[in-house]
Design a protein around this nucleic acid. Structure first.
Lengths: 237, 237
DNA sequence: CCTACCGATCGGTAGG
DNA sequence: CCTACCGATCGGTAGG
């Protein structure tokens, strides 16, 4: 099944999924042609993500995408079985990137503390790290993949939705212990599950109103979010 | 121009906008036929809202809508100039209803206090009232109009967007003094403008995950939101 | 990966 | 408001 295969296949540019025509004959040789095809495929994804975000999935024709990519009208189907598989690849690529960035951000945060033995970043600092990284993935330049995933979920199959939900749960898993810790210390006043849903909503909705070069920076957004959600720790008696 | 006309016309079922064919001959008489047409029009809007929400605007054909309404395939165009005007009417109807409900909720809150002279609801209570009402408009049964407005903004014209933005600003206007008051008292820790955007995001996003009969009630959602956003008032020195 | 093409479906209209 | 219909466009394929 396509979604499962696509999910287990590496999504980075190094381990290229084979182009459709060469399927069923073992691992294809990586000729110069194959590497170009990888670039073309990536370009196709980028153009599709941009168009899906601006016009929606149903409002974008495969011809629109082909034209933007500089291909003939039927050529997207050389790289993807159908339009829906292209959308799913965009969404999956967005989640892969978001997960990688999240892990990198948390690692970087921990590194600053590991040398000083015993020291750990506070739960508030960890949440700040997660929120900043989330805003960057949502609002950074050329990051159309995640907004497409957030707003076109209804256009993929149930199996594809399940595959993405799995990645989303993995993404959320990094947040839960941080929120639990804040709840336990009295700095988060809403039940963890609802708090998580409400906080993600506050962040995700920013793709609707945030415009670069105008108003707040991502840093200001992060600071404001922390101030809004995280209460002062109550003084211990 | 259609959007402007539609905006200034009353949207309630009593003052019916004239069906298209009788245009240009003064106010049409309200025969039994006309009243039926009003019901048909309303039914059309309800069915369209449900389909637009489930399938998106571009994913819903006018034939889908006609079939759901029990009409022939070309009959929606008897009531609306085109598919886009139908979408705009759905969105506008949603905003009209949301505004009316908001005013009613605030009036009801004030009434409880008006008899006891001098007493006023706290800013926190006012925010609770606004949040509860907002959740009800977003998540209540058969309320597809507002979710459609939130997610199909790109499918209407710039003029129609401007008309809806005006209604949205009116809706937000009720929140601003409440948030300012909470900010001044130290119960809201994020700048008012960003706080408003983040809070609306947290609430609006609930249409993505909230399911009736499962998990939290609207009341629990409201309580959790208040707990999350509104900090304890600092003790005065 | 391109060109030419297919059947299906779309928004919208005419004529009643 | 229905029936019949129009031109345009769509996703996808064949054959190279």
């Amino acid at each position: 099944m396509t979604p499962a295969n696509a999910l287990s296949a590496p999504a980075s540019a190094s381990g290229l999924p084979p182009p459709r025509p060469s399927r069923g004959r073992g691992r294809p040789r990586k000729t110069v042609d194959q590497m170009d095809e990888g670039n073309r495929r990536q370009h196709l994804l980028t153009c599709a993500a941009s168009l899906f975000r601006r016009q929606g999935f149903d409002g974008t024709s495969t011809r629109d995408i082909a034209l933007a990519t500089g291909m003939g009208s039927g050529s997207p189907f050389y790289h993807f079985e159908n339009k829906q598989a292209l959308l799913f690849a965009v969404m999956q690529g967005g989640m892969d990137r978001a997960l990688a960035r999240q892990k990198a951000a948390l690692s970087a945060l921990m590194e600053g503390y590991d040398t000083k033995s015993g020291q750990r970043p506070t739960a508030k600092a960890q949440l700040g790290c997660l929120i900043r990284q989330h805003f960057e993935v949502l609002l950074g330049e050329g990051n159309d993949f995640i907004p497409v995933m957030l707003y076109e979920f209804k256009s993929i199959s149930a199996e594809q939705q399940a595959a993405l939900h799995k990645l989303q749960r993995e993404y959320e898993a990094a947040w839960v212990p941080v929120l639990k810790s804040l709840y336990a210390s009295g700095q988060l006043k809403a039940p963890v599950k609802l708090a998580r849903l409400l906080i993600f909503g506050a962040l995700n909705w920013s793709v609707q109103w945030y415009r670069q070069q105008a108003g707040a920076s991502i840093n200001e957004l992060t600071v404001a979010s922390i101030s809004l959600f995280v209460h002062d720790a109550p003084a211990l008696p």
